[in-house]
Amino acid sequence: MPDTESIVATRHWVERVIMKYNLCPFARREVERNSIRYAVIEQTKVKAVLARLVAECEHLDSHPQTETTLCILPRGFEGFYAYLDLVELAEALLVEQGYEGRYQLASFHPDYCFDGEPMDDPSNYTNRSPLPLIHLIREASMEQALQTYQQPETIPERNVVFARRKGSAFFEDLLQRCHQPGNQTSG
């Protein structure tokens, strides 16, 4: 999948799923400010991907106007467990590189499955994306946003209730539409 197609699918997911259905109440502001960086990581070797993640942290360090980065992994991490291994290594690398407390990771994958949940449980769609992603988040910004949001700890539970009410077929359709630039999501 060419870079532009990966970015378009991911941008559609952010705007037509995450923002539209308020899965992340902080996304709208960043979409409207155009402060989300979409970085396609073409490398498929773990070491090379980790090097790119560090480079993306460095980019955030030197570009304060960029609030967050979605690192898109179009190849090499289609398998969910290999992807989880990468995320675990990425988290350890952030600590090793001195980024702990500055950036945190959020993980999204087309086959995301919460521990202890069946694969077909609609709640998994709260973390399913059209392509494997690693989301780099500025911790200071997140802390500030959480201070202005009433009961932020209820966000995941609210999303699970919403996902289960809508059902897996609804979300599967949304994710498929993200890969089709001309289609709008419904619902």
Rank of each mutant, 00 (worst) to 15 (best):
A92S: 07
P25E: 09
T68F: 02
S123R: 04
L53I: 06
R33L: 15
A90T: 10
I155V: 15
P25V: 15
V87I: 14
A92P: 02
E58V: 15
A92V: 04
E96V: 07
I72Q: 10
R28G: 14
N127D: 04
R177N: 11
K166H: 05
I155H: 03
P181D: 10
E15G: 09
S62W: 02
V31C: 13
M1H: 05
T126W: 00
T126E: 01
T154L: 05
L73D: 02
T4A: 10
A9I: 11
R28D: 09
S186G: 13
E15M: 09
L84A: 10
D115V: 11
L146K: 07
V161D: 03
N159R: 04
L86P: 03
T68C: 06
S129N: 00
E30T: 14
Q150G: 10
E91Y: 03
Q147S: 10
P2R: 12
T69E: 00
E91W: 03
Q176C: 08
C24D: 04
I134L: 10
V46T: 13
E78T: 15
A51R: 10
L175Q: 09
E88Q: 12
T154H: 04
S186M: 13
N124L: 00
E5F: 06
F170K: 06
L94Q: 04
L53H: 00
E96S: 07
